[in-house]
Write a protein that binds this DNA or RNA. Structure first.
Lengths: 219, 219
DNA sequence: CATAAGTCGACTGTTTACAGTCGGTAGTGG
DNA sequence: CCACTACCGACTGTAAACAGTCGACTTATG
């Protein structure tokens, strides 16, 4: 019965749990599941066509990612962000990405780094004319790449754990405000700063970027 | 009638999942479950006297905390840390805690901060003569307090997500090396730096602390 | 009419049972 | 002695059922 939900794609290696995870993440960060909404396990499991056990594993992960908050009696609801929390999230994000920028400057092989980042910039440029979602996606991909290129798995993992909260922040503030942070030129500045190899400059550039980004969101 | 079975102190009644989580965390960070060890669900569920479903929820969380690594076919094993990973973990930790230090300096009510930190210092001092585990515990509690006092829930959450990896790093390097980082004086320096309100100084002090800590671990 | 006790319903926490898949191993043939 | 095949066992992924608890609603009672 559940075999016909989404099978005919050549790559069916994702577990149902991961599928549910993606589906829920999308539903939450797109606003389909509005903030504050109480989640009922039986309801969701039926909606997603998976068992409660499998669903609960996904919910634990979302809870830890900060997309869900637990109320009394273990009841989960979609997390609600206020302006302070958005600032807090961006403060942590800034700390992580400034570490990334510094690390990249001290890397021996900066050639590959530069190439990958320019590639990410190109993707952002290509998405300029696209939908808001596409632009957000390419922006996040740029910053994720920033963390990935450091080769610090822990850093990447921490950033990805924060990614859901970042998406919620953008969604919460309104996508229009969100995309205002996604100027391609701004990101070129970041790459340029890293290219110089000046860790202090790179860190400063990232921090300013994050600062204005957060300011735009809560404005 | 059954409502008054466990009216203990502030201790909330913990779900089986949380109990299992604590038990597994302890088992891993204590080395009882040696790194690289394959975890068998049926084995663990019987050992912990809980069902596999409940166990799996706990395992997902531990996986996301970085204590477990997933192999092919979803097989979990206790994560193995090499020196680079320890350095990486401490780099992220340093980024988070330096943010904490800076934030604390900019806080309006630093009176309460100072009191709480001195209290944590006292706890460390009291633990000086205790076991290695106790000293590690009080050290981590100090740093956790550092993050908690910022009022930035996201920062605290990120730090706590890293805590398991930190514990593994210490365990991995050997507890003796680990406790060498736990000089009470060093921590007093941190508090003193925060007391001055000089964000730059506080950040610098923390970064140095983390730097030497990481260096000691991989030495 | 207001309040307190009792009942109903819904939800989560937990357990048990089933299906699919992969790796290893024994057994057979060259 | 080696290779190949077919079976066996272990483990994960998944589903369905059971139990306990809390809140809301109803009813009885002063």
């Amino acid at each position: 019965m559940a075999g016909l939900t989404a099978p005919l794609l050549g790559l069916e290696k994702k577990s149902l749990r991961e599928q549910a995870l993606s589906a829920l993440r999308t539903a939450i960060t797109s606003g389909e599941l509005e903030p504050g909404r109480h989640l009922v396990e039986t309801e969701l499991s039926e909606m997603l066509q998976i068992s409660r056990g499998t669903l609960r594993e996904a919910l634990r992960q979302l809870e830890q990612e900060g997309l869900l908050s637990a109320g009394p009696r273990g009841r989960l609801s979609v997390r609600h962000l206020d302006e302070k929390e958005i600032r807090d999230i961006y403060a942590v994000r800034a700390a992580l990405e400034s570490l990334a920028a510094r690390t990249l400057c001290e890397l021996p092989d900066r050639q590959h780094v530069t190439e990958s980042l320019h590639q990410a910039i190109d993707a952002m440029t290509a998405a300029t004319g696209g939908s808001l979602e596409e632009r957000i996606e390419s922006d996040l991909e740029f910053h994720r790449t920033l963390c990935r290129l450091t080769g610090n798995e822990t850093l990447l993992h921490s950033w990805e754990s924060l990614e859901g909260s970042i998406r919620m922040s953008i969604m919460f503030a309104g996508l229009e405000k969100g995309v205002s942070n996604m100027s391609v030129d701004r990101h070129k500045d970041i790459v340029a700063a890293i290219d110089t190899g000046d860790a202090t400059l790179a860190r400063k550039t990232i921090l300013e970027h994050m600062d204005t980004a957060a300011a735009n969101l809560v404005a």
